[in-house]
Structures are given as structure tokens and as C-alpha cells.
């Protein structure tokens, strides 16, 4: 059995048939060719597959495609690279496998600075695992995009 669905993907209407068990992650990667969204764990732990669903970050490995019927989905491919300068400067990417998910969450935080009244950047980024950077570069990049002085430790330990 397949289901007919339609949704908005990066601003464009998409309609397709989808198996009820099909994951949004696989639909994006293998059927629509949007390979910027990565699979890291397949169970919602690592955040590498983060996309926006109606403006909220979700793990696309945990979302059945039929559930995005009528919704607005945005992926890393839709982001404006102009925003990414601080991520390059601060060394926020190394191997790059977690990076698209990290960027999705990070830019969502910087678009919602009110979250920082109740949470730290480190708490808000804790759903995106990175095995390379030790997180300082990522935390500093987020802090820079929201105009804060880096809390990642830059400068503190240096003569």
C-alpha cells in the first residue's frame, strides 16, 4: 500500500506516493536527491538528519514521510550560505558528517535568541552529536551569529 501525499519542500510543492513506513530522511536523500541531510544513527540520537518541519527542527529519520502531508519542509539545501561565515572562522566543521544537522539547529537557535534567556547554547546544541570538534568551534559559531562573546573558551586559555 502507498499513500498519496503533497507537501512544500524548500518552497516548492511536491507530490508523491509514499509507503507508510518510508522515512522522510530516505525520501529526501534517495528519492528527491537532497543528500545534504545525513544519516548518523537512524534513531533520533545524533541530529545529523535535522530538517525543519513547519519551522521546527526535527530528526527526519524519525518522521514517516506520510506525516508531512500538507506541511512545510526545509532542508540544508535551502539555507543561505551567507550566514555561515562564523562557522568557517570558528572551525565548526571538521569531517562534515554531522555538520548539516548542526547548522540547521544552530541557525534555528540564532533565529530564536529568546531561548537563551532560559537555556545555554550548549544545552540547545546537545541534540546534535559531533565526534570531531569537541563542540567549542560549534558553540563559538552559534554565539557569534547571535552577537555574543564566545563561551567556547576561545581566548581564555591562550596567552
Amino acid at each position: 500500500m502507498t499513500l498519496s501525499i503533497g507537501f512544500t519542500l524548500n518552497g516548492k510543492a511536491v507530490s508523491m506516493e509514499a509507503d507508510p513506513a518510508e522515512r522522510l530522511l530516505d525520501t529526501l536523500r534517495y528519492r528527491l536527491g537532497l543528500t545534504g541531510t545525513k544519516e548518523g544513527c537512524g534513531e533520533g540520537e545524533c541530529g545529523a538528519c535535522t530538517v525543519y518541519l513547519d519551522g521546527l527542527p526535527v530528526n527526519s529519520c524519525l518522521v514517516p514521510t506520510y506525516q508531512v502531508r500538507g506541511a512545510r519542509v526545509e532542508t540544508i539545501e535551502a539555507l543561505d550560505p551567507v550566514q555561515l561565515g562564523p562557522f568557517l572562522e570558528q572551525g565548526a566543521t571538521q569531517c562534515g558528517a554531522c555538520t548539516p544537522g548542526v547548522v540547521m539547529t544552530a541557525l534555528w537557535i540564532s533565529a530564536h535568541p529568546e531561548l537563551l534567556e532560559t537555556h545555554t547554547v550548549r544545552e540547545l546544541m546537545a541534540g546534535n552529536l559531533c565526534r570531531c570538534t569537541g563542540y567549542d568551534g560549534i558553540v563559538d559559531a552559534v554565539a557569534t551569529t547571535i552577537g555574543e562573546v564566545g563561551e567556547g573558551g576561545r581566548g581564555k586559555g591562550e596567552a
Binding site: 541531510t37 532542508t75 550560505p81 562557522f87 547548522v103
Partner: peptide
């Protein structure tokens, strides 16, 4: 290759 990685 940083920008390629950051943009997916």
C-alpha cells in the same frame, strides 16, 4: 572544503 560541508 568547509563551505561545501556546511552547506551539505
Amino acid at each position: 572544503e568547509g563551505l561545501a560541508k556546511l552547506t551539505g
